[in-house]
Simulated scan of single mutants.
Amino acid sequence: MMQQFYPQVQHSYRFELNKDMHLAAAHLIPDAAAGQCQYMHGHTYFINITIAGDALDDLGFLINFKRIKEIVHKRYDHSVLNDHPEYKDVYPTTERVAEQIWKAITQELEMLAHQPKCLQVVVRETPTSYVVYRPKPEELA
């Protein structure tokens, strides 16, 4: 994988973890205003997830890299995004995919005693287009 550089999140946590991954998925935005995207098509999405915290678990992790991949890759790889329940009432735009990845990661992090936080999710849909999702400060509390 080519090394990617993403916008940095300013924070005061001691540790910052970044996980890159890619997955293949299809979607459509069934509205004429979406142009060609109104038809089923696929992408190889490149995803970067930033997690930070001040404390580590008993093994010395904020969270195991493998667990992050399981949460995201297993859920979306080689699937039609429109078929996922989180997109039942909304279109799976890149913005919403980034938001849903943040929600899934955050749900997992909230179960951990040392409470790391997901600060940013970047979803690259094409080589020239990507979305950055960052939660509001109150969502990190």
Rank of each mutant, 00 (worst) to 15 (best):
I51Y: 03
E138M: 11
R124Q: 13
K103C: 05
T106K: 05
S129D: 14
E110Y: 07
N64H: 05
Q4L: 13
L56I: 09
A24N: 13
Y130R: 11
A52K: 00
P135Y: 06
T94N: 07
K69W: 01
M40R: 15
H27C: 00
V123A: 02
L17Q: 11
V80E: 04
D31P: 05
D83G: 03
Y39N: 12
G53Q: 02
C37P: 07
I49Q: 06
K66S: 14
A113Y: 08
F5K: 09
Q8I: 14
I49E: 04
E138Y: 13
L17C: 05
L17T: 12
I47N: 04
H41P: 01
I71H: 06
E125M: 01
E108I: 06
L28K: 15
R67C: 09
D83A: 08
L62E: 01
F61A: 07
M111T: 13
H22L: 08
D77P: 02
E108Q: 09
T126G: 08
L109P: 00
E99K: 12
L109E: 00
H84S: 05
K88E: 13
H27Y: 14
E108W: 08
I51R: 03
P137I: 15
Q100C: 02
K66F: 07
D77A: 05
S129T: 03
E16F: 07
M111W: 00
Y45H: 09
H22T: 10
V80H: 10
D57N: 14
Q107M: 06
E139Q: 14
A141Q: 14
V132P: 01
Y87C: 06
Y87A: 09
D20K: 11
I47V: 13
R14K: 12
V131Y: 09
N64D: 14
R67T: 15
Q107P: 06
I47W: 02
G60Q: 03
N48D: 08
F15W: 11
A33R: 14
Q36C: 05
A32V: 15
K88Y: 10
N82T: 03
T50A: 09
C118N: 00
Y91T: 01
F65W: 02
I71L: 12
